[in-house]
Amino acid sequence: MAPILEVEGLQKRYASGHEALSGVDLTIEKGEILALLGPNGAGKTTLISIICGLVTPSGGQVRVDGHDIRHDYRKARALIGLVPQEIALEPFETVWNLVRFSRGLFGKPRDDAHLEAVLRSLSLWDKRDAKVHELSGGMKRRVLIAKALAHEPKILFLDEPTAGVDVELRRGMWEVVEGLRARGVTIILTTHYIEEAEEIADRVAVINRGQILLVEEKARLMARMGRKELRIELQHRIDALPDRFAAQGLELIHDGNAILYHYDTRGERTGIASLLAELAEEGIVLRDIVTRQSSLEEIFVGLVTEDAA
């Protein structure tokens, strides 16, 4: 199947001279949820803005369902819905007028039933006649989503959709996202909250300082990059680790009551079996063993600090 979005060698140097993107390549398949993960200033918004036509690239190419975003901008943009990072809405318009406007602006014929369904799915139907300035922050963000969905896009960009949004609303938002995915809509969301990516993404792309550091399926990423930690609790406290263990990177913790061992799930052998045997040889008696896998957050922090080094 042809990818729905192809980004090749995308570059952006702002008028200020700042290089926000330095050669970004990214391919996105139809119907997936991709989380674009990166710290503030990484270039996430710039990347999205170029794809959506808000910012002119300095170099590189973008194709949306095969349509070049510059030469074939009508076809490319008609497929895209954008929920911007900042809330920007006309304060004195009603919700209904705004979503109707959005649909018309994208050249779609009037379809009140569709707009109603969109508003209902976002719990905004009761607010359809309310003016924007009467709405809460969370509602305004949902209005932005409703506007982006008004023209039935095939790709939805959500730029930090949950910034400043409470937990309940966030859950509601993920339900909407799941529903869209079920209908085959491709979703790209940016975030610097790892939990968000961990919760709903199929794939994760990590971006830092204008470069994509990696793109991988979330599960594979966690398995590949995940470091595991083994905590061995001891029956009797010891004063020091026998010398032979120091080289293996073991750590004595909890005032000598436990030993910490880090290992890589990527390795052929984890070395756990031999370690346990060696501990027994030294006469160290175990009380309990606990393992823990690192979260996406730790992976992410690891990648970004590696990149900065």
């Binding site: 808000l54 490319a76 943009r77 911007p84 920007a88 006309e90 602006l105 994208f106 050249g107 506007k147």
Partner: peptide
């Protein structure tokens, strides 16, 4: 107010 984003992203 920033709503120009929508005009610029429209076909």
């Amino acid at each position: 107010i920033g709503t120009v984003y929508e005009i610029l992203s429209a076909p």
